[in-house]
Design a protein around this nucleic acid. Sequence first.
DNA 1: ACAAAAGTGTTTGATATACACCCATGT
DNA 2: ACATGGGTGTATATCAAACACTTTTGT
Lengths: 253, 253
Amino acid sequence: MFTKEELIEFCEAARQNYLDHISIDCVVFGFHEGQLKVLVLKMKKELAWYLPGGFVLKNEPIENAANRILKERTGLDKIFLQQFHVFGDPERSRPHREMYKDMLPGVDNWFSHRFLTIGYYALVDFINVIPTPDHHSESCRWYDLTDLPALELDHNLILKTALDTLRLQLNYQPIGYNLMPKAFTMPELQKLYETILDKKLDRRNFQRRMLGFGILNRLETPRKGGAHKAPYLYSFDLENYQKALNEGLKGGW
Amino acid sequence: MFTKEELIEFCEAARQNYLDHISIDCVVFGFHEGQLKVLVLKMKKELAWYLPGGFVLKNEPIENAANRILKERTGLDKIFLQQFHVFGDPERSRPHREMYKDMLPGVDNWFSHRFLTIGYYALVDFINVIPTPDHHSESCRWYDLTDLPALELDHNLILKTALDTLRLQLNYQPIGYNLMPKAFTMPELQKLYETILDKKLDRRNFQRRMLGFGILNRLETPRKGGAHKAPYLYSFDLENYQKALNEGLKGGW
DNA sequence: ACAAAAGTGTTTGATATACACCCATGT
DNA sequence: ACATGGGTGTATATCAAACACTTTTGT
């Protein structure tokens, strides 16, 4: 992936700038054409794909680190980002560590250290993202969740955990503001829910429930130009959306 | 708290054994006499209290580290333990860092490094715990949640986050097996819920709902000797309890 | 005219809430 | 006998699920 000299240089720079033993990996969810998508990278000269990730600067809050990493890969700032789990198995990055160790035998190679990784997931508006590879990577692109290649290391586990968390979240928080365009139709929003949950929902019940949350505004102008009856457009009522984020959607106890 | 020589020794030992920049803090919840309790420690020669915490051995899974730390403070093994958040503000442990820095000026003092801390919370059966101070601490004891002293660093935030997580958890997972004795009455279990949620619940509705989960067995012999009508005793049906843990208690979407 | 998408309402069952009476026990 | 805690049932409101017909629009 890089030459020995480059690696030594990277190691030295990393050692100076970043916290040792800690990395961040991000699961970036987007939604487009009825498909839930995940942003992945491919390293140069490797076959497998990775989740976007990076390290924490020595004096940087971890939330900022996650934001910075995502800004570099997507061009987006102020993304909806949520920490969801730390993956701390000492074996989790063994193949990676050994690869780096072999490249510089006998040297204390920063990249061959043990790393815990903090998992964040992000919900972003697909069309605003400009997938941008980093300088270790030859490609950065979206994959359909249903069509995802095998990921390196424990990144499949990280992805699965993110998805489980997102599904849970659906039960007590509104989502969608970050995944949908500014204006959208009810069937489009329903598709998002169906895609995340991987099951069909009833149109009428979905609409009733969603409207019941009071986080949607129906816009004046229906969407024109479709081949069928013009659907209403909705946007999120940000104030109520925010309130629902803080207070939760419905009771439990 | 310790002498210079001791500190130098501790630093060296820590540097050799533990991952740098990473700590673990545990919020240990117990329940006794109708009160939710939290286990806290007091450092020698300091006034303030801390949550039990520690570091991760270089080749140790983080779950094991949390278990090990808790075993040392409580005597208990195989505790219900749940990771809930990483606290990664670079300022979070500043007072601590400066204190240590001042003790060994000019030396690279391991304890004065920046640490992210991984928060775990534990639910334990109060009466089985033997609160055990570590060698930095002069005391380890339970405090009522309602009567808690101010904690050092960001430990009040950690505690609050743990409690919020626990409250959320109540909505989709059974709890109690780890906090209640083997056999208990319905009013006792209700008290646990009321204490965690900090609100009164209706006796009849609580009972109906709880029995509806199908995770309780009513035992043969009611409790004798109380000053009033003998209540039934219940125990958790471990098989169903486990199933409920995995599958969640009720739907949502 | 018709196919496909979108809008809408009602009925039914389940669950949550609110509420009141009876029973057992120790004093 | 009575005070206290514990057991139980019912009526009502709210919410979730199931389900079918009508409207619009482009072809």
